[in-house]
Amino acid sequence: MVLAFGLIAFAPTISLAQPIPNHVAIERPMSGTVILAMKADITLSELTATGTADPKLEWAENARRHIEQAISARLTAQGYVISRADPTTITDDAALQVLKLNDAVDASIMSHAYAYGTGKLPTKTSFDWTIGEGASLLIPADARGAANAPRYALFVKVKGSYSSGARKLMMIGAAIGGVGIPMASQAVEASVVDLQTGRVIWHKFEIVGLGVDIRTEAGAKTHIESLFKDLPL
């Protein structure tokens, strides 16, 4: 019984091994380089006792506030300047196409790096991904060509759920009976794109550690530190 419970609790903490490099080596950008932080796409749900995942807007908004703050603090401490953009407000057709391409490239990286062999591209031996020079279309029109135009774009996606109180109780109860019920977990996917060349310079997918609550200031900070460990910026 105890063993069964241990296994259930352990399952979500298994981190996904990353078999291939997830970034390119770049010269550290100058202090004052502008980084365009795209508004994070966040969905957090409440995993109920019955197994439905009820989307919770206020959780997503809390997580967004704290994650954006943690990112800002981390990057400004390094001397970078943060500028913000909301990709959901882009209406220019060509820029929209670039956004969609970026999503597609992210999906390819995910499938190549994490699909445990089934989606792995045999000829992709180094971290070599690009969305092309069209990436510059993501630079807000008023900043295009300016000296302080953003050089890199940072994309963050968060998806996950937290168990409701009833579900936690049920997990314990079921575990005592020897049955495992999946626990809630959250995952963060982030990438940095060079807005001049379109090159993806870093991509990372990480499951939020047990005991880290990204809806809180401290939790978001802890996770961003872990997420950005190998960020080449």
């Binding site: 969905t43 989307p55 807007l57 206020e58 997503a60 929209l96």
Partner: peptide
């Protein structure tokens, strides 16, 4: 605010954005 419906609407608006583009 903070209702289940608010969460569902927020997800629906993401799908709407996908459909519209």
């Amino acid at each position: 605010a903070n209702s289940l419906e608010a969460g569902i609407w927020s997800e629906a608006s993401k799908v709407e954005l996908k459909a519209s583009t």
